[in-house]
Amino acid sequence: MKPKTSLNPEELELFAQAIGSVKPLSQDKVNLKQPSPAQKSKQRQRLTFEKQQFHFSDEFEPQLPSSGPMKYVRQDADSFEAKLLRRGEYTPELILDLHGLKQQESKQEIAALLASCVKQHIKCACIIHGIGNQVLKTKVPHWLVQHPSVVAFHQAPLEWGGMGALLVLIDLPDDPFSK
């Protein structure tokens, strides 16, 4: 039978002096209470709420600029917001990279990103869609226009991805500075 420790008796004595007088635990297992049916119901409701995500339509065709940088400002917002995004006045706190994702996965990730921004009170996010075959580059702006939390978006400055990315400005419900 192997000893429990590889320490020699001198080291064991030194250890015992260092820790002083301690009482070993008689029982080190914790019996957790089972959640009540009401708690289980609340948890289930919370999980279902988190799973509900915004549904983007692929059929919707907004009127976006066909030339120049991709930009959009919601009707009830100040058009100067797009200029501030272009200048890099807003720094994105979350970045979503869609490289390698299919359209359906991209829609889910964008919806999750926007929900996260609202939940965490993040005003600006960056969505990197890439250039590639131009599929996501054309679809992402169409999806963003449909979401009620999106105030504005603009093609990102070079430092955040340039033509392959968008900076998105999020409407925060409790933000005293938003319109």
Score class of each variant (00 low, 15 high):
residue 1 M to N: 09
residue 3 P to Y: 06
residue 4 K to C: 02
residue 9 P to M: 03
residue 9 P to E: 05
residue 12 L to Y: 13
residue 14 L to K: 12
residue 17 Q to E: 07
residue 17 Q to K: 07
residue 18 A to W: 05
residue 18 A to P: 05
residue 19 I to Q: 10
residue 19 I to M: 08
residue 27 Q to F: 01
residue 28 D to I: 02
residue 29 K to L: 02
residue 32 L to S: 04
residue 34 Q to T: 07
residue 35 P to Q: 06
residue 39 Q to S: 05
residue 42 K to W: 13
residue 44 R to Y: 08
residue 45 Q to V: 14
residue 53 Q to D: 12
residue 53 Q to Y: 15
residue 54 F to T: 02
residue 59 E to S: 08
residue 63 Q to L: 11
residue 66 S to Y: 00
residue 70 M to I: 15
residue 70 M to W: 10
residue 73 V to N: 06
residue 76 D to P: 04
residue 77 A to G: 09
residue 81 E to Q: 04
residue 82 A to I: 05
residue 83 K to Y: 02
residue 93 E to D: 09
residue 94 L to P: 10
residue 98 L to I: 12
residue 100 G to Q: 09
residue 102 K to V: 13
residue 103 Q to K: 11
residue 108 Q to L: 12
residue 109 E to Y: 11
residue 109 E to W: 13
residue 112 A to N: 14
residue 112 A to Y: 13
residue 115 A to N: 15
residue 115 A to R: 14
residue 115 A to I: 12
residue 117 C to V: 07
residue 119 K to P: 07
residue 121 H to C: 08
residue 122 I to T: 06
residue 124 C to N: 07
residue 127 I to H: 04
residue 127 I to Y: 00
residue 131 I to K: 08
residue 131 I to C: 11
residue 133 N to R: 03
residue 136 L to A: 05
residue 137 K to Y: 05
residue 138 T to W: 00
residue 139 K to G: 07
residue 139 K to A: 01
residue 140 V to M: 09
residue 146 Q to H: 13
residue 146 Q to Y: 12
residue 148 P to T: 07
residue 149 S to E: 11
residue 151 V to P: 03
residue 151 V to S: 01
residue 155 Q to H: 01
residue 155 Q to C: 02
residue 159 E to D: 01
residue 165 A to Y: 06
residue 166 L to N: 15
residue 168 V to S: 12
residue 172 L to N: 13
